[in-house]
């Protein structure tokens, strides 16, 4: 289980880094989205992988899942959601103003 999750995070991060380094704004935005997915999963697993455990105090519970990473992930998701929306608008604005979707706004591209 741990190996699978870490593999998923690693592949997501690698895809994110690769896409972020592309020269067009659309892959860059996708890359940033992949990176934020990877980091959200990563934060989630930082509370250790548990299945079927309650995050709040319960007399019948045998163990607990750490609730804090879940709260952190929620915050991180909201922030990355807003940032993605912003960067998409900015990429569209750059496409309109610079005439192409190259990240450096090259005229020959």
């Amino acid at each position: 289980m741990e190996a699978l999750v870490s593999l998923v995070i690693g592949v997501l991060t690698a895809c994110g880094v690769y896409l972020t380094l592309r020269a067009r704004t659309f892959p860059v935005v996708l890359g940033l989205t992949f990176l934020s997915y990877a980091v959200n999963l990563f934060l989630f697993t930082m509370g250790r992988l548990t299945i079927g455990q309650p995050p709040i105090i319960d007399k019948a519970a045998a163990g607990y899942a750490d609730p804090l990473p879940q709260a952190l992930v929620l915050t991180a998701i909201v922030i990355s959601f807003a940032m993605t929306a912003f960067v998409i608008m900015l990429a569209l604005k750059a496409r309109a103003e610079l005439g192409n979707d190259h990240v450096d706004g090259r005229d020959d591209a």
Binding site: G16, T20, T25, V28, L32, L35, S36, A38, V39, F42, L43, T45, M46, G47, R48, L68, P69, L72, A76, I79, S80, M83, F86, V87, L90, A91, K93, A94, E97, L98, V103, D104, G105
Partner: peptide, 28 residues
């Protein structure tokens, strides 16, 4: 301004992701 802004935003978003990785590792 738009071109400089795009670079600024993208590099800072990448920086924020790294910040989360660091904070997550420290918490873990």
């Amino acid at each position: 301004r738009t071109r400089a802004g795009l670079h600024f935003v993208v590099i800072n978003l990448a920086g924020s992701t790294l910040f989360l990785f660091a904070a997550g590792t420290l918490y873990g």
